[in-house]
Design a protein around this nucleic acid. Sequence first.
DNA 1: TTATATGCAAAACATTTGCACTTGA
DNA 2: TCAAGTGCAAATGTTTTGCATATAA
Lengths: 137, 137
Amino acid sequence: MVKNSIEQKCVQKGLRMTKQRVVIAQVLSSSNDHPDAEELYRRTIAINNRISLATIYRTLKIFNDNGILEKHEFKEGKFRYEMVYKEHHDHLIDVETGKVIEFQDEEIEKLQEKIANKLGYNIINHRLEIYAVKKSS
Amino acid sequence: MVKNSIEQKCVQKGLRMTKQRVVIAQVLSSSNDHPDAEELYRRTIAINNRISLATIYRTLKIFNDNGILEKHEFKEGKFRYEMVYKEHHDHLIDVETGKVIEFQDEEIEKLQEKIANKLGYNIINHRLEIYAVKKSS
DNA sequence: TTATATGCAAAACATTTGCACTTGA
DNA sequence: TCAAGTGCAAATGTTTTGCATATAA
């Protein structure tokens, strides 16, 4: 049985691998989008219906605290989640469709370092979100 | 009686200037920080205690819809507000104290335009937040 | 065995809303 | 006058928590 990288990280961190966490890890691993807690709940109970929403929230918190996933808030009044297994990237949100596009830009990363530095700070993390509409062609 | 710029904007937009809105406008005008709804409520009732929290929320929504203020969410699970009377700027959040520092960087603005453009989008707005800790000197 | 994790239902928290009343223009 | 705004309290939507029970290591 091949463990996905979330399970590996949990073991590393000394977290107990319960049935529920295995399923939640599996769902997160196979999600390429940015689901919210409710959506993750739907996806997990489709695999194993003996998982509660409270466990989803508790697990997301633990995974977040352990650097296994990232918590986003795209101005919708709720949080959305994404695994931390990819390279760092930022988000462009299509305000018409809600679609989220990921992008990376080395130059922007460097500029931020420079700005924080000038202000006397060290960056912990950042978020850059561009809210935009598709160009009419 | 000199009207502050929020009142002027309300008149421009055809919004009714109620007693409550006058006070809320006054509070916003004299706030240089990024208060949340609860904090704005406290500040307004200190001036006039006949204002309800519901009115604060309704007024903030209207002011936001009319481009009078900006609504921020600094990963705290609630919104914070700021007047739109200054130049555009981004935020650096001191994760230890919650202090918010404003900054501007023309180069970053341009880079974002370039990125959105490359992805086939036109920017509506964006947010850039840097979460950081003060350098130990 | 036992510290940790879970399910359930209730609570918490920020925000919104229905409705009858009030008020600015 | 009367459309727009308000206060109040109840409702909403998301997330958290207390507690008794279950389980991974």
